[in-house]
Amino acid sequence: MISLIAALAVDRVIGMENAMPWNLPADLAWFKRNTLNKPVIMGRHTWESIGRPLPGRKNIILSSQPGTDDRVTWVKSVDEAIAACGDVPEIMVIGGGRVYEQFLPKAQKLYLTHIDAEVEGDTHFPDYEPDDWESVFSEFHDADAQNSHSYCFEILERR
């Protein structure tokens, strides 16, 4: 099963200049909980913004210009990325925008964090048809001392 995991502000903004323009430790914990011990696929820009392999996960970098870091697996196509994951129950696609666009048609599940923030962004989550998805989990949280904005975790499964 292919799943996408993303944090989205208003207007589906997911990033600005290779960074997330908010401070939500709870979302980072949600991300870790849902990706640990699963292969993660990301684009080169996302890889560069993280700066290191995510521990406890097979890191697969999709790029037309593969790098030389041998701590991760470099691939040039969506099919190659899927094959590099091996026989696993769930593959997690973690961004960025172009990689989400490439995998959305193949995805069966979306793990979304909806952030109540209007922020400037240069990267967006692809538009998706809500009628194609069923919400199977939703959990709202107010902003607090650690988390700069209110947010809602949601899991959607393709109908």
Rank of each mutant, 00 (worst) to 15 (best):
P105R: 11
R98W: 15
G56K: 07
P39Q: 07
A29N: 00
N34K: 13
S63E: 01
L36D: 05
L36F: 13
V88G: 11
G96L: 04
M42T: 02
N59A: 12
D144Q: 05
S150T: 04
D131F: 10
M42R: 00
T73L: 11
Q102F: 15
K106T: 10
K76G: 06
R44L: 02
Y128E: 05
R57L: 00
S3E: 03
V75L: 12
F140W: 09
D131W: 09
R159K: 10
A19H: 11
P55H: 09
Y111R: 00
M92F: 15
E90G: 04
K32L: 08
R12L: 14
T113S: 06
H149I: 02
H45C: 03
A143T: 05
D69C: 13
T123M: 02
E17F: 01
E48P: 04
H114R: 15
D116P: 06
P25K: 03
S63A: 12
A9E: 01
L24T: 13
M20G: 00
R33S: 11
A26N: 02
W30L: 15
E134S: 07
L112M: 09
H124P: 12
A145M: 07
R52A: 11
W133N: 06
S63D: 00
V119D: 10
E157H: 05
E134F: 10
H149E: 03
G43S: 00
D144R: 03
R33Y: 12
M92I: 15
I115T: 11
I91V: 15
P39V: 12
A9I: 10
R52T: 11
S77A: 10
P25I: 13
C85K: 06
G97R: 04
G67M: 13
Q146L: 08
F137E: 11
T123Q: 02
E134D: 02
P55F: 11
V99T: 03
R98K: 06
M20C: 00
M42V: 00
R98L: 02
W74M: 11
V72H: 15
E139N: 07
E157W: 06
Q65E: 09
D122I: 00
G51L: 04
S64V: 09
M92E: 01
A84S: 09
A26S: 02
A29K: 04
L24M: 00
P126Y: 12
D142F: 12
V88E: 08
